[in-house]
Write a protein that binds this DNA or RNA. Structure first.
Lengths: 351, 351
DNA sequence: GTGAAAGCGCTAACAC
DNA sequence: GTGTTAGCGCTTTCAC
């Protein structure tokens, strides 16, 4: 750990290489970027010296001239949530295909943090930012946050999975309405009519959309809407799924099926259902969204709406890169969900 | 999304600000860094202009002179695993306390990717790199990887939660032996003597350490070591926990308690135990490591070894920053685990 | 094909 | 206090 020793490895620059190779820095730069032709023997000599000195080009210096950092910033709500970690990894893989790098910042539900992250990304001169979850999903956007968004979008492309309606953002959204359709078709097909909706906040766009479609479909199928079977204001974590579901059951409102806003909530709800003495799926079917690995971990395994993370990530990154390169991708794209049926849903029991 | 419009917001620089404010660029830089005093009225004028033009300092240019990017690179195995996402968020929070930023790269079990990540970080001139999981945990280090590590440590400090013995790395390791001690004390206190060990690969340092201590303690307490109760080569995911445990039970080897290498494996093992017709914890107790949120999600909730992520993250970041600042932190530090007792473990049944 | 020179946006002596 | 002057390491015209 001797500092001395570390310093002697001091930044080797293209000038050092150039001098020793008996060429100019420009030539070294040329072999580095392979943007122009260099005579083979010089190229070889340079390459060998780079190897010898463990030369690593300075991305900062490079970015200064390029105005292209090849870095995409991702601000997500919280990677500890499997949905976001799946999305992040999907983006990371997609980006590396294109020679881009991604950097992640978590907003952790804090508007200030989220703004700070955007600011950091701006300072870092990322080529684009992708916003997954967080404030961008709010139905009513925080004005402070909005101002920051305007500032960012004024300079670089921003793609979001959220709302940000009216902003100069590229949207790549999950078709939440379609997800609910798949769910309802499935449940109705199994004979369910007392279908609860659990979790989430209605001021979050995706949840709002889901709920809207849920009520619409009930009406469409002539099923009475029962407010007591709606456990909104639940949040997105297991605890709130547990609490919301528990409260509903405790009040004697027993559905035959429960739609959870995500797998986390579903897991909490399942626990609560069991503790109330019901069996899954015999007494109550449970169905949810995200199809994260959680869905396969629980018993019975969850029927869940799947978004095809890999594809989703590719769309996000692809859109960002096309925007960076001035190719004007569509302003709005939808991700088609599918339903993965497992064992947490079954035919409604004859009661 | 009109490109034209975006371009007109072209990079405002300190020179633009300086000119309009009627001061020199140096002065603008001074108010930016607040490293030196500037007359209040000039400062105000500059500040106002920065606001007006949404000036955002270019971190690349800044890093070019500073040789201090205020960025720490973290390479983790896979954020989709709760252990790593918890660690990452803990580091992110700790770093922001110190005015540092962290960037994440996932190695995803691929040596090539891991080397690439290190290389990227080097190019980005991060001030330090923190290695959590991945190749650094191997008992026998891949020579290619090792070379890259040497290259990195030759320039910037590297702190690792892994092995990397003999390298110029700062180690901040979990005291895995101590974790097993806590587990064994707990289990022995409950009367268990047929204790299985499930999951992990023995060529991973942390698993190796756990297993070593496990056999040591058995001997110490005069309990015969039963190889049939060891399900190594299991990996770290739910599937392998499920498979390994299933195989053991199928062969008629039924322990009274199972030590899982992490929560993921534990969840898989639990499923397998149930499917084999045993109850948890009445027939078989289950205990694991990591105490991730998974531990509280499952039924019964898992007794698990906790590492205090926040503190762990602070140690990692603190060590990195001290090293960056030339303060020579200790070469090796241990994280003390504790045991969180929940309901997956109980007194061994009278059989 | 290759070198010289300018410049990317900022910081840090160094004078005044 | 504040301006001037060098760079930081790289890319990129522009000549030759």
């Amino acid at each position: 750990m001797d500092k001395a020793k570390r310093n002697e490895g001091k930044a080797v620059t293209i000038y050092d290489i150039a001098k020793e190779a008996g060429v100019s820095a420009a030539t070294v730069s040329r072999v580095l970027t392979s943007n122009a032709n260099v005579r083979q023997d010089k190229k070889d000599k340079v390459l060998k010296l780079m190897e010898k000195y463990d030369f690593t080009p300075n991305a900062l210096a490079r970015g200064l001239t390029d105005t292209r950092s090849k870095v995409i910033g991702i601000v997500a709500a919280d990677v500890r949530n499997p949905f976001y970690s799946e999305m992040f990894v999907a983006c990371e893989l997609a980006a590396s295909e294109y020679g881009y790098m991604v950097v992640l910042g978590n907003s952790l539900g804090d508007t200030v943090r989220e703004k700070l992250q955007l600011e950091k990304f701006q300072e870092q001169r990322v080529d684009a930012v992708i916003q997954i979850g967080g404030r961008a999903d709010d139905m009513v956007l925080n004005p402070d946050y909005l101002e920051k968004v305007k500032q960012v979008t004024g300079r670089i492309p921003m793609v979001t999975t959220g709302n940000l309606e009216g902003q100069r953002c590229y949207q790549v959204r999950i078709d939440d309405g379609r997800g609910i359709e798949l769910i309802m078709e499935h449940l109705l097909g199994l004979g369910h009519r007392r279908i609860a909706f659990v979790g989430g906040w209605m001021d979050i766009a995706s949840t709002h959309d889901k709920f809207q479609r849920y009520t619409q479909l009930l009406k469409q199928y002539d099923i009475p809407f029962l407010p007591e079977l709606v456990g909104k204001n639940g949040g997105y974590d297991p605890e709130s799924g547990y609490a919301t579901m528990g409260a509903m059951l405790a009040q004697g409102h027993v559905p035959t099926a429960v739609i959870a806003v995500n797998d986390f909530t579903a897991v909490g709800a399942m626990k609560s259902i069991r503790e109330a003495g019901f069996r899954i799926p015999e007494d109550i079917s449970v169905i949810s969204h995200d199809n994260s690995y959680m869905a396969e971990l629980v018993t019975p395994m969850l029927t869940s709406v799947e978004y095809h993370y890999q594809h989703f990530g590719e769309m996000l990154i692809g859109t960002a890169i096309r925007a960076i390169e001035g190719q004007e991708p569509p302003a709005r794209q939808l991700v088609e969900p599918t339903l993965v049926v497992r064992s947490s849903t079954s035919i409604v029991r004859a009661s």
